[in-house]
Amino acid sequence: MIYFVLQILVLVGLVMTSLAVILFKDLISAAISLGASSLILSLQFYLLRAPDVAIAEAAVGAALTTAIFIFAIKASQREEGYR
């Protein structure tokens, strides 16, 4: 039972951070939220007993994806506005 509660809490966090990605107009904040979302997703993988996937998601989703997003934002623009 407590395991299920844990999963529900993690899923709520996942949806919240994904919502944050959509809501932020500031792209860097959205990238941060995406990183947090990957982080929490990795925790969920951990709870689902998939350690391999959790490591891969931690390495790829949380670190490298955020890095390349930040590079792309640096190369283009920070605001979401229509320019």
Binding site: P51, A56, V60, L64
Partner: peptide, 25 residues
């Protein structure tokens, strides 16, 4: 360590490679 212990513990080529790449990062 993740790569060479890939057949024993969680990890393997992809995860280990990504961790090594993070040192480049």
């Amino acid at each position: 360590y993740l790569i060479v212990h890939g057949h024993l513990t969680p990890g393997g080529g992809f995860q280990g490679g990504a961790v090594i790449a993070s040192s480049t990062a």
